[in-house]
């Protein structure tokens, strides 16, 4: 028979006001959802605020490297994680957090239309796709310029497309489009691809993919629809490729403006964390791609989310004069 949570936590959890929580988790990707499972199971009244469910994982239909899972689509997988968090009592609000600040010994979290209070915060809002930053990109966004190959590839049956990027995501996109489109131009600004070797050899074997190296995109051109992309290589040679769509896979960045005075960031604007996912501000934990942990993978974010949740529990317990996680499987 499991021990019931301590009285102070039970009171907090049964608090009928919907704006005060033990912890607010910003972001519902792999890190945020795992953190929500762990904080909820520790009887911390948990609110997850996120624009979306699942984060970057949702963009892929083939996850094959998550331990124990043979093959699953991102959307299906992350919906399960969300259901699991809800099962243990986590609450969700789908909105964009505009501000997080400290007030006394608690935190205020604002969205466009609402305001919440929490004793602690877990920042897990991940990364945002980088834009090319060239003329024509904004004009054709959603009308030929795409950041999700798995969503939009089918619209380019028998058409010509460009994929920009040098990592696994770009290689993946090129392979997917190679099966559907008439012609794929894979444009990368350096000589070597950073993506997984297994994908690169598949790309090289696909006749419909033309690799264009040492080259950058200068402009996306067209009248009503995309008609061409202007490119230039390192030697200054210019070319125009006739295409109907362009897939941007040049990596991600952190959009951290709303917390940049709350916690210390590194020069890439990632949140600096220690091994226990603690940030420079007591009571604020961070996990997942948004942190300065080098590798960005679902299983890593999940692990970091669990650590952040346990550190969060320890912080709240200590505030109430109690112990953190027990000796048999963690620090006091």
């Amino acid at each position: 028979m499991p021990r019931p949570p301590p009285l102070s936590l039970r009171r907090a959890r049964n608090d009928s006001t919907n704006t005060m929580f033990d912890v607010i988790i910003v972001g519902a990707g792999a890190a945020g959802l795992t953190a929500a499972i762990y904080t909820s199971r520790r009887a911390l009244k948990t609110l997850v605020i996120s624009k979306d469910v699942g984060g970057q994982a949702v963009m892929t239909t083939h996850i094959e490297n998550y331990p124990g899972v043979d093959l699953v689509s991102g959307a299906e997988f992350m919906l399960k994680w969300k259901a699991q968090a809800e099962k243990f009592g986590a609450q969700f609000i789908f909105d964009e957090v505009s501000e997080v600040k400290k007030e006394g010994d608690k935190f205020i979290v604002k969205t466009g239309s609402q305001q919440f209070e929490a004793a602690s915060i877990i920042l897990a809002f991940g990364l945002t796709p980088r834009n090319l930053g060239v003329p024509g990109e904004d004009r054709f966004r959603g009308r030929g310029v795409s950041y999700c190959a798995t969503c939009d590839a089918p619209f380019y049956k028998n058409k010509s497309v460009a994929v920009v990027g040098g990592g696994s995501a770009a290689l993946d996109a090129a392979l997917l489009l190679g099966k559907i489109a008439k012609q794929v131009y894979l444009i990368h600004r350096s000589e070597e691809f950073r993506g997984e070797e297994i994908l690169l050899s598949q790309v090289k074997a696909e006749r419909k993919i033309e690799m264009i190296l040492d080259t950058e995109v200068r402009e996306v051109k067209g009248a009503e629809k995309i008609e061409a992309v202007a490119i230039e290589n390192k030697k200054g040679e210019k070319r125009e490729l006739e295409i109907q769509g362009i897939f941007v896979e040049i990596g991600h960045e952190v959009k951290a403006d709303f917390i940049n005075s709350l916690v210390k960031l590194n020069d890439k604007k990632e949140i600096i964390v220690n091994k226990d996912c603690e940030t420079s501000e007591p009571g604020v934990l961070a996990a997942g791609d948004v942190t300065d942990v080098d590798y960005k993978q679902i299983v890593i974010s999940a692990g970091e989310g669990a650590k952040a949740a346990l550190s969060c529990y320890r912080y709240i317990q200590k505030k109430n004069g109690k112990r953190g996680v027990g000796i048999d499987w963690g620090k006091k």
Partner: peptide, 14 residues
């Protein structure tokens, strides 16, 4: 929407 598109699956319930 389309049934095979990840973000569409997430938007459906909304």
């Amino acid at each position: 929407f389309a049934t095979w598109c990840g973000p569409c699956q997430m938007t459906g319930p909304v």
